[in-house]
Design a protein around this nucleic acid. Structure first.
Lengths: 107, 107
DNA sequence: CAGCATCCTTCAGGATACTG
DNA sequence: CAGTATCCTGAAGGATGCTG
């Protein structure tokens, strides 16, 4: 059973496995400001397609970072929000924002 | 001239453009502990190939994150280290390490 | 509205061989 | 040792159409 490489020893690699992806970071950034509907995310995450947004939301849901709430209405309404674990990523995002601003000012 | 999307407005996207890549994060992590030779990086960045390591180092050099020092010897000796800008990424890496550890302990 | 199903393209990254 | 040069594959992601 050498296929248990799902859990790397190194902490950074764990983090990368969960959010080491451009789209995921952008989705989390937008969810940090509060609950969003699917269509809102489609608009706020510039350039993402339905398929990609869906698959990433599913993956993050499975990882316990995002929760999905379906309202049994017509037309359908689905809201996504960060779980406590997902929200705990905020420090990482914050430092990325801070660094990005500093880097930009040096250009 | 709509091809000027090289500099996104959003700080997070700037950061992602420079280190939004699994390999780059791992390379930076290893350089944070000090100057490394090419072969040392090949070993410490588990699983990376020569070509990929080279291309990422070049990109990070161009971005001003990494400096490359060539010693005119035989056999060749090349050392890579973080620039001040590159080192300033440490808080991001630190928060990723911290988060990774916390997430792991919840599994 | 919030998706799922398909098909198709692209290119990051891997494998291999060669060199100053 | 530290690369460069090719070739090649897979899978991430884009485009489009359909539906509960």
């Amino acid at each position: 059973m050498e296929n248990m490489k799902k859990v790397p020893e190194c902490p950074v690699e764990i983090t990368l496995q969960l959010i080491g992806d451009k789209w995921k970071v952008l989705i989390i950034r937008d969810l940090l400001t509060g609950t969003k509907r699917f269509s809102e995310l489609m608009r706020s995450v510039t350039g993402i397609t339905q398929k990609v947004l869906t698959s990433h939301l599913r993956a993050m849901e499975a990882a316990g970072l995002v929760s999905r709430k379906v309202y049994p209405e017509v037309p359908p309404k689905v809201e996504y929000s960060l779980t406590e674990t997902g929200y705990s990523l905020k420090p990482i995002l914050d430092s990325m924002v801070l660094w990005g601003m500093q880097y930009k000012s040096k250009l």
